[in-house]
Design a protein around this nucleic acid. Structure first.
Lengths: 237, 237
DNA sequence: TCCAACCGGATACTGTCTATCCGCTTCTGG
DNA sequence: CCAGAAGCGGATAGACAGTATCCGGTTGGA
């Protein structure tokens, strides 16, 4: 469903389309979904007009990329399901998903503030919800999972960790693993003697920084001309 | 520091000032810090001009209220410190802070997206940081706290829980307690056999709703005339 | 009684993002 | 090789949201 359109675009047009998608992926990952279609165009090194001719609006761009992301997530789920040890499967799932989110701010956006997500949230949960439930069920059968824990719990646990990821991405990108470990210990059935945590505790300075708006959270202010680097030579013209 | 100004305001002016502060507190709690000074004025039943004559901008209003909130939080800290059992003290602290946040969206805003907080974050952490450290230290001496856990960890744990609170405030206001329990179990030293969780797992429907932007997260759209209910009769005029 | 202090709220500004338009350029098939 | 359809760039119009001011009219209190 990627590009099997009705009648083929002209060669340059198709190239620009890909260029835009690529730029959008990068920008979404880097800054989140709030980037402008104009931003994307500039980053892709094409005119705004071109962007709007290819995609009616940002929504369409997101849609075009969303499938990919969703597939990735689903793949992680399958992969986790393939893991012979159920508990390890669950852990792997969380680790991988979260790692993906560290690198892709846009993905986190869809999950946390689905302002642009709407129907996509539904789609996502229909796709990965079942996998999650399987993962949980398996772990329950193994007896490794705390009584009463449901698939939906994982979603909220992920949401919680996301907040940490978001706050620390630029300050201490791996810190979330510390709290993931804590979570996991709170989630397993037989409470093994809690081992050492994987990451050292954040310093007070890191903590401060993580809570400070110096990063570009919602409305970043980038100096002009910093992002209009057309990484690729323009197509036509 | 509340109102001991240089020379007293005229009676009506002072009344309006209080009215504005009151309105601001309500609105911040209900909708977060993103409300407009105009919103506040309308909610207070006074003109915008009046609002701007009393406070140069929203910042000033926040400042005027921030001290109160901070004091509340600090009080919770002290209170927790007074608790004879260190572990219970820590738990109490978290429970009470979080409960406060459920009711006050603005408080959460300052912590999570301090776009308007800045220096306030510093102030806050200077004020409650030490208390937190004492709380932790005490628990460590008791031996009830997991090795290596620091005061800063609590901040991030709180941040994580905040995300859940924010997402579920309107759908399942108490749900966060379920995850608090999980957290706590991941944080204590001797892993007691994990008891039942305090709140049932969220249904899939609740989960969906929590992730849906039907609530007013950043840019709510309220129908006109819904909020311009001057709860109090206007002062002068 | 008088006037400095105050009030309301229309409105001018500002900044941000969306989306279109149109003159020029480039592909492509006959 | 050439015509003209398809495409291109980017200035700019428009929509909106939030900020802040101004000024004619009102009020408190010495």
């Amino acid at each position: 469903m990627t590009d099997a359109g009705a009648r083929p675009l002209r060669k340059d047009a198709e190239a620009n389309r890909r260029r835009l998608l690529q730029a959008a992926a990068e920008l979404f990952a880097e800054r989140g979904l709030q980037v402008t279609l104009n931003d994307i165009a500039r980053h892709a090194g094409v005119g705004v007009g071109t962007a709007y001719r290819r995609f009616a609006n940002k929504e369409e761009v997101i849609d075009a990329l969303f499938e990919q992301r969703l597939a990735e997530v689903a793949a992680i789920g399958e992969h986790a399901l393939a893991e012979p040890d159920p508990w390890r499967g669950l852990v792997t799932y969380l680790e991988q998903i979260l790692q993906l989110q560290v690198k892709d701010r846009g993905l986190t956006d869809i999950i946390n503030h689905p302002s642009l997500g709407q129907h996509r949230v539904t789609e996502a949960s229909e796709r990965i919800g079942p996998v999650l439930n399987l993962l949980i069920e398996r772990a329950h059968r193994q007896g490794s999972l705390r009584e009463g824990l449901a698939g939906t719990d994982i979603v909220f646990l992920q949401l919680a960790l996301d907040a940490i990821i978001d706050a620390t991405r630029d300050v201490a990108p791996g810190l979330y693993r510390r709290y993931l470990a804590i979570f996991l210990d709170g989630i397993r059935s037989e409470a093994a003697a809690p081992g050492p945590l994987p990451v050292p505790a954040p310093t007070e300075e890191q903590t401060q920084k993580a809570l400070s708006p110096s990063r570009p959270p919602p409305g970043e202010r980038r100096r002009a001309g910093t992002d209009d680097r057309p990484d690729f030579p323009a197509a036509a013209t």
